[in-house]
């Protein structure tokens, strides 16, 4: 089912997206619009294709052997799967934060933040310093690490590592930031800090966040998409999509209601 009508000026528009792992169809004809400078949460039971879906938005899906895709993903009106589009360019515009923090263990905190921008044009030292401070601030980590920027990224706690990964993603200045259950491996206090950071991000970024945590979805997001599989082995579908408030207070479909009220999941 597609929900293309609700958002007038989308950054990303997904049309009739089918995703496969080899012969297995993981996602069936998903259509979605993602609003600019808003937070879109994707919820649903495990294995329903939420993570697969966001990996389709920045072309990370195709790094899995045998993975394949049909349909269109328009980023600012341009299909990211068009033949002349370089996936590397797509990923610079659509950044990603993963479920488990994955800082580069051989790099310092400072070098972790600038790992992405060092791939592009050369920057002056003063420019880099400014970017590191700004992005670490945005990720709500600056105060905790400003005196040990040269230490290894691995010296940080799990929650701090995840915020470091957020800063690293911000440094590349993507338009859209995808987050795949960014707080699921963290304690409540770290989760709180990351949620606060995400709230601030929507001033300048568009955020898509996958979460298993219903409270988190209702707290941070403006729009919510509910993914669902009808039976084991069937592909995931976008079951319902809309403004977060409506999805949680007045869902149109029974399964959505059951899920958001915690009756299954």
């Amino acid at each position: 089912m597609s929900y293309l009508h609700e958002i007038s000026e989308p950054v990303v528009e997904v049309q009739d997206l089918n995703m496969y792992y080899g012969a297995f169809k993981a996602l069936d004809s998903v259509g979605m619009k993602i609003a600019k400078n808003r937070i879109t949460a994707l919820i649903g039971p495990s294995g329903c294709g939420k993570s697969t879906f966001i990996r389709g938005l920045n072309r990370m899906h195709e790094t899995v052997p045998g993975a394949r895709i049909e349909g269109k993903v328009l980023l600012d009106g341009e299909d990211v799967y068009a033949e002349n589009v370089d996936p590397v360019r797509v990923r610079r515009k659509v950044g990603m934060v993963f479920q488990k923090p994955n800082p580069f263990p051989t790099m310092s905190i400072y070098d972790n933040v600038i790992a992405g921008i060092k791939l592009g044009r050369r920057h002056k030292k003063s420019e880099l310093d400014e970017i590191v401070e700004r992005t670490l601030n945005q990720a709500a980590l600056w105060g905790e690490v400003k005196n040990k920027l040269k230490d290894s990224g691995m010296s940080l706690s799990g929650g701090q590592q995840q915020r470091l990964c957020i800063a690293r993603t911000l440094a590349v200045e993507p338009e859209v930031i995808l987050m795949d259950e960014p707080a699921s491996a963290l304690d409540p206090i770290s989760t709180q800090k990351i949620e606060d950071a995400i709230q601030d991000l929507k001033k300048s970024y568009t955020v898509v966040i996958v979460t298993h945590n219903m409270q988190q979805a209702s707290r941070v997001s403006d729009y919510t998409g509910f993914f669902f599989i009808e039976e084991m082995g069937a592909p995931g579908q976008l079951w319902e999509f809309g403004e977060t408030e409506r999805i949680f207070s007045n869902p149109k479909r029974k399964e959505t209601e059951d899920y958001v009220t915690g009756r299954f999941g």
Partner: peptide
């Protein structure tokens, strides 16, 4: 995860 981290940065 290390590979994906770097790829996702472009």
């Amino acid at each position: 995860a290390q590979r994906e981290a770097m790829l996702a940065l472009g």
